[in-house]
């Protein structure tokens, strides 16, 4: 029987897939970015329906709200135009689309047939922020800390790459403009 829950779950899933397809079809980068935001928001809805309200909120705040804003920001800043369409090879269409469909059906079949997968009831997975906090800071403390250090290193790397090369005084008088 179709419950409201299942209908909503399928609806959000459909939005997700439609957004992902639209992301590929659109020719302007800003439309693609907005489709990606729709995918992120729909994913948040799916998490919420699975009872993971904290993850859903973070999905919206971090991915849809912060990371995608930066994507849109960069697209706006670079003033990226409409992408040019090449004719493309007919072979890619003839082989590619059926191949992709067969591949995804195979993956879905394998995942569904795998003995470990079953139905997940709402609330079966850790949802409340308190549970997640407990798990992060007890059970998964080491991976959590390692990830944070990894991100810190990545940030420092980005800063090093983005900063101007240090101007050495030997390079010439033009460098020495008072600012």
């Amino acid at each position: 029987m179709l419950s409201v829950h299942l209908i909503l779950f399928l609806a959000f899933g459909a939005v997700c897939v439609a957004g992902a397809v639209n992301l590929l079809v659109q020719r302007h980068p800003i439309n693609s970015a907005l489709s990606l935001i729709a995918v992120m928001a729909a994913l948040a809805g799916e998490y919420l329906l699975l009872g993971a309200e904290f993850v859903a909120a973070l999905q919206v705040i971090v991915y849809a709200g912060a990371i995608m804003v930066l994507f849109v920001f960069v697209i706006m800043l670079l003033n990226a135009g409409v992408e040019e369409r090449t004719q493309g090879s007919r072979v890619a269409i003839i082989i590619g689309i059926p191949g992709m469909l067969i591949g995804s059906v195979l993956v879905a079949w394998v995942v569904l047939r795998h003995s470990g997968t079953g139905e997940v009831a709402v609330g079966a997975l850790p949802g409340p922020p308190k549970t997640i906090g407990d798990m992060l800071f007890h059970e998964f403390l080491l991976p959590f800390e390692i990830t944070s250090i990894l991100i810190l290193v990545a940030i420092m790397g980005a800063v090093v790459l983005a900063s101007k090369p240090p101007s050495s005084p030997a390079e010439g008088p033009t460098q020495k403009v008072k600012d």
């Binding site: 904290f54 909120a57 973070l58 919206v60 849809a64 804003v69 409340p128």
Partner: peptide, 20 residues
């Protein structure tokens, strides 16, 4: 039970109005 996060999430989406 995550009211505060809902507000933060909704306001963070609101940025798109101004940016777009």
């Amino acid at each position: 039970n995550i009211g505060l996060l809902v507000i933060l999430g909704v306001t963070s989406i609101g940025v798109y109005g101004v940016a777009l």
